[in-house]
Simulated scan of single mutants.
Amino acid sequence: MSNELKKTVLNFLQNLPENPSDQFNKLFEFYRKSDRKQRAMELSYNRRGYSDQNLKNLLYDVKKVYDISDIEVLTVKKVEAEKEIKINAIPDYILDMSEEELRAWAKLEVTVPGDGIKEVIELAEKQGFEEIVKILAEELEALSFIDNKDDKGNGENLGIIDQENDKVLKNESKYENETIALRTEFPFLNNPNCPEKLFVVVGKRISAYRTYQELHQKLVTIEAGEVTIPEEEKLELIKICDAAFNENQALWNELNHYATTGEILGKHPLFREDNIKNEVDLMSAEDMFKFKNASSKYFSVQKKELVKHMNDPAKIELINERIADREFKLALVNAKMGVNAKE
């Protein structure tokens, strides 16, 4: 595989065009050029063309065949120059990096052979950039278990960088490996003050990621004609695979937002109760009184909606979620007002 071609693909992934169809067409062009492509998948993508699910699958496959990790894609700072630092000053783009960007650059440096980290540390020590020295030294120590890859990109001895899930140590359990990868990608998980809810997010993300990988691989075998299943079952498999992909992305968004801002994003349903508690905390006595009085009518309307949509499972689930949220919020309001739920 050409390093130049990989750089071209990586640059494209870091600067995707807005039009999803354009993304698909270019990604398919890159996939066809790879000597690691699967002929059956090439034919399948060519036959089926663009769709939201096909774009997600193709994006996954392109990163896989070109050995491109999520960290490489997310590190938008250009890293070519630091591979051969032969200057007496730290480049401005490194000085302009935030702590998270600097740590991401250090992780990327491990995936591409070079002495960038050590040379920057030496320059930083000479020029008095103590914080840069501290951050890079921590990253260098944390990643010291990773051996150099051979010419084919394979890891040796203790471990490898796994391009589908960032990093995996061969001699640890799979769950521990994935947890180590996330702790490396999101160092705040090692902080004793990290919100407990984010550890739940980590567990759910690992589960969603595994589900997507397993279902995606199953769909690959189906498209290749190795396994035959009814069309309805296949469509259901695609639906579940799509849901796992979206779940994984939503959970990653929560972790990345906290890593970037130090604040909980709270958009995932996992944070629903926390968000409701925060809403109640901000309610005035008048707001709570109005909410309590309006709840009886609200429940009555929702019960009618349940009857109306009794043959639509998705709609029923959504309505029941709304009812549960309202009941939970009403219980909190009652407790704050000092009244019994039956009053």
Score class of each variant (00 low, 15 high):
residue 201 V to C: 11
residue 44 S to R: 10
residue 125 E to Y: 00
residue 228 T to V: 01
residue 303 K to Q: 13
residue 12 F to R: 12
residue 204 K to T: 00
residue 262 G to R: 02
residue 111 T to I: 08
residue 94 I to W: 03
residue 2 S to D: 14
residue 75 T to E: 05
residue 35 D to A: 07
residue 131 E to T: 10
residue 7 K to Y: 09
residue 254 E to Y: 06
residue 329 K to W: 01
residue 223 E to I: 05
residue 132 I to E: 00
residue 245 F to M: 07
residue 59 L to Y: 14
residue 24 F to T: 06
residue 169 L to S: 09
residue 328 F to K: 11
residue 229 I to N: 01
residue 219 L to E: 10
residue 226 E to G: 05
residue 182 L to D: 06
residue 149 K to P: 09
residue 162 D to I: 00
residue 139 E to L: 02
residue 19 N to T: 10
residue 226 E to H: 05
residue 56 K to Y: 02
residue 90 I to E: 02
residue 311 N to W: 05
residue 244 A to S: 14
residue 275 N to C: 10
residue 244 A to W: 03
residue 206 I to P: 05
residue 314 A to R: 06
residue 305 E to C: 06
residue 144 S to M: 07
residue 3 N to D: 12
residue 300 S to T: 11
residue 172 E to M: 12
residue 292 K to H: 13
residue 168 V to L: 15
residue 285 A to D: 12
residue 45 Y to H: 10
residue 309 H to Y: 15
residue 41 M to I: 09
residue 71 I to G: 01
residue 237 L to D: 00
residue 182 L to N: 03
residue 17 P to A: 08
residue 247 E to S: 15
residue 234 K to N: 06
residue 4 E to I: 15
residue 292 K to D: 13
residue 24 F to Q: 02
residue 24 F to M: 07
residue 172 E to V: 15
residue 207 S to Y: 06
residue 67 D to F: 14
residue 238 I to A: 03
residue 207 S to D: 07
residue 94 I to D: 03
residue 164 E to T: 14
residue 322 R to D: 08
residue 40 A to H: 04
residue 75 T to L: 10
residue 33 K to D: 05
residue 263 E to G: 06
residue 142 A to H: 05
residue 200 V to D: 13
residue 136 L to M: 11
